[in-house]
Amino acid sequence: MNQPVPLPSTREPGSVRLVLSLALAGLISGIAIIGVYEATLPTITANKARELREAVFKVLPGVARMQRLEFIEGSLQPTEGGAVNDQTLYGGYTSNGDLVGYAIPADGPGFQDTIRLLYGYLPKERKIVGMEILESRETPGLGDKIYKDLVFVANFSNLVPDPEILTVKKGTRSAANEVDAITGATISSKAVVRIINEAHIRWQPRLPSVAPAMPLPDNETGPETGKPPREIR
């Protein structure tokens, strides 16, 4: 057989050379990573924004525009960018700029991990008109029915959250504030309801039914008016 061939450098190199080669590699790798990051960042941000827009339009039917709002010092004020916290929600407007309702993000513990969701709330009718799960790690095949089972999701398209939403056994929904639980995934269903109940208690007193005006000009166009502008590559 062949003799094992020694690695290229047989002489013991000085530590300066070792440090230099590592530093150089780190530098090149850093530059490469920054380059890729810069190149992909616009697409990533646009993807996230589009996902959010789609979710807002889904939970608030009939909405043409949206505006991010923040609850600051007792009133809702339009904001741009920044981190989403539990003071953030989204206002949905008609194309004339009249307020339709609010899309409220909420989260809480599910069966396995935190469930993040968005629900649409009409302040005038005091009604929930839609619910969309943004992020969850519920058991596939059971807990994930909270977004895969359209019958369950439909519970939230016409739901009165006062005095509080109750989870009832599947098929026994009788009042406007009741939700049919999913068979075999009672805990996940109850988690969704609990998250909404808690968010509702926090938000209900803060929401004016007339709402801050839609600032102009707006660039957040809805699905009816065509596709949102894509970023330039």
């Binding site: 290229p8 190199p13 590699a25």
Partner: peptide
């Protein structure tokens, strides 16, 4: 591989 010193190869 010619320029990779063997002492720090894993890190590289």
């Amino acid at each position: 591989k010619k320029w990779i010193p063997k002492q720090v190869r894993i890190s590289l």
